[in-house]
Amino acid sequence: MATETFTLDDVRRILREGAGSDESVDLDGDILDQGLAALGYDSLALMETASLIEREYQVALGEEVLDIEVVTPRVLIDAVNAGLDG
């Protein structure tokens, strides 16, 4: 496991590694509460992100977290940290 706490920087890194980034989206900006769909990530990108999280942090994300319409970086952070604590 890379760290004991999953952070916004981890979300940014994993999004870039797994699905790349749209040049028109500034992942370094204030994205904590922006939906991943609004950031240009589709359900396939979210599945790749979840797969990378599971491999790196050994945390499986539930289906409620993988709903592309409601997932924000904050939701991912909270879900991964809950899994790390559990």
Rank of each mutant, 00 (worst) to 15 (best):
A82D: 13
L32T: 09
L32V: 11
R12L: 05
M1P: 09
D26F: 11
M47Q: 08
T3A: 14
L76A: 02
F6W: 07
R12H: 03
E56M: 05
D26R: 02
D78Y: 10
D26K: 00
S51E: 08
D28A: 13
I53E: 09
G29N: 14
E4Y: 07
L8W: 01
D26A: 10
V75E: 13
D78Q: 15
A50S: 13
S43D: 05
G62A: 08
A82V: 00
E48R: 08
E48D: 14
V80E: 05
R55E: 13
I53P: 02
L52Q: 15
Y57T: 09
I53L: 11
G29V: 12
D10N: 10
L61G: 00
D30S: 15
E69A: 12
Q58A: 11
G35D: 08
M1L: 07
L61H: 05
V71Y: 01
R55C: 07
L27F: 07
D26H: 10
R55K: 15
T3K: 14
I68P: 03
G18F: 06
E64I: 03
L66V: 07
D10H: 05
G18I: 05
D28N: 15
A79G: 04
G62L: 05
V75S: 14
I14S: 06
E4L: 11
G18K: 02
V75D: 11
A2L: 14
D67Y: 05
L52W: 15
A82P: 00
E48T: 09
E23Q: 10
I14P: 01
E56V: 06
L44M: 11
L15A: 10
V75F: 09
V25P: 07
P73R: 02
A79F: 03
I77H: 01
L8N: 00
T3D: 14
E64R: 12
S24T: 12
G29W: 14
D9T: 10
A38H: 00
Y57M: 06
E23P: 12
S43R: 06
E54A: 15
G20L: 11
L52Y: 15
L15R: 01
D42G: 12
V25H: 08
D67E: 14
G86H: 11
A82F: 04
G35M: 01
D10T: 01
R74S: 10
E64L: 01
G20Q: 09
E17P: 03
D30M: 13
D78H: 14
E64W: 01
S43L: 02
L39A: 04
G35T: 10
S24P: 01
